[in-house]
Design a binder for these strands. Structure first.
Lengths: 213, 213
DNA sequence: ATTTGTGAACGCATTCACAGCT
DNA sequence: AGCTGTGAATGCGTTCACAAAT
């Protein structure tokens, strides 16, 4: 039931929760004590009813006539998103993209900890990213994922290798995957995957430009 | 009307067109002459009716009882997506991510040409990416975008600078933007924007992992 | 027999509108 | 008066199911 509830939450809602968390952090930093659904909605460019419906799904955090207490709501949303504690993450593929992901500044203190990168190429194995994250040989993937209790894997390898990498990550115990390779690997039930496909972004953009002749 | 038609096409459809193009290219490389909606659907993990509906929106490309001619359909879809000719692209922000995007292998021959990167930091201005793309000073943005007739800008700068960069790109004549900064810049009507937000991907993933306790 | 193209049905997410609380 | 929480309404995208075509 805990599990069923979670399954019921549309992905669109969880993505908005992430936006809400961001503006709540900003509001708190700005010293705001309370905020209305309209206040949040304006900052996220959404409908206020959308914000209320999203939040009320998880409980009545607001106070009628007043709004939401910023600091309390920030804690609630952070907990919902599971970023109140750090999730360990590995990155497979230590090319340009993998290294850029490893050193992405948004990770610091954001609930995710990059444990390691993996690659098969001798010229990168044994080195470290600029930010100091070690690059291991891909052979060590299973061992390190298990030892470090890694929960999330990011896949930044060429398309042909992606499916195999995903399989190995899942077999090692990873529960969530962010895939940057231009393929759609399938994953067993209970494993979450998000595909980030640069070509789809560009081509769908290009479609609209073409439409404007 | 041309314009209205284009506006009517849901973004979800245009994203799927990009997937169709990819499998059509693969099918053609594999020497397949025809393919059914089911064949495409299986490769994209979609419903066959979805594929037919998407394609029939643009015309009756299929033959009843037979399917679609692979090579013809590939040409049609490529043209719809506007990747039959090269669109010029600039990248603003030549940090790890910007450089990784510039050298992304998927671009070669895919209908997009990276013209230049821009940055404000002395240590990168005047250098080139590994793939040979020049890094200019951000002051030159407007001049080069106009001179080179750039249509798409990718934004890979820190969050505080993103809104300003988007404004300058649009003012210079760019029509489409892929934004990697964790903010949602707003753009005038007629300008398309796609936000790629790593933190949203990770946090929405994290939500599901948390739900599985 | 096979497969497209499409109107109808369905399901889901967003928005409206208002009752209920402060 | 102000704002939340939510049932009802709307809008939209997906899937079904079948007529039309080969």
């Amino acid at each position: 039931m805990e599990r069923d509830d979670t399954h019921r939450v549309p992905e669109a809602t969880t993505r908005r929760l992430s936006l809400y968390l961001r503006v709540l952090i900003d509001l708190e930093a700005a010293g705001e004590k309370t905020v209305s659904s309209r206040g949040i909605a304006d900052l996220c460019r959404l409908n206020p009813a959308q914000v209320r419906k999203d939040l009320s799904r998880f409980g009545g955090f607001g106070q009628r006539g007043v709004g939401y207490e910023v600091s309390e709501l920030r804690t609630v949303v952070a907990t919902l998103l599971g970023v109140d504690s750090e999730s360990r993450v590995v990155i497979v593929g230590a090319g340009n993209l993998g290294q850029a992901l490893a050193d992405y500044p948004g990770f610091h203190g954001g609930g995710f900890e990059i444990v390691a990168l993996f690659d098969v190429r001798d010229e990168v194995v044994g080195t470290r990213s600029r930010g100091g994250h070690p690059v291991h040989h891909a052979e060590e993937l299973e061992r390190i994922v298990q030892r470090e209790d890694v929960r999330i894997g990011m896949v930044a390898v060429p398309a042909p290798q992606a499916a195999g990498v995903v399989r190995r990550l899942v077999a090692s115990g990873v529960r969530g995957i962010v895939n940057f390779a231009p393929v759609r690997p399938d994953v067993p039930d209970g494993i979450a995957i998000r595909n980030v496909d640069l070509k789809v972004e560009l081509e769908s953009l290009s479609f609209f430009l073409r439409g404007l002749e």
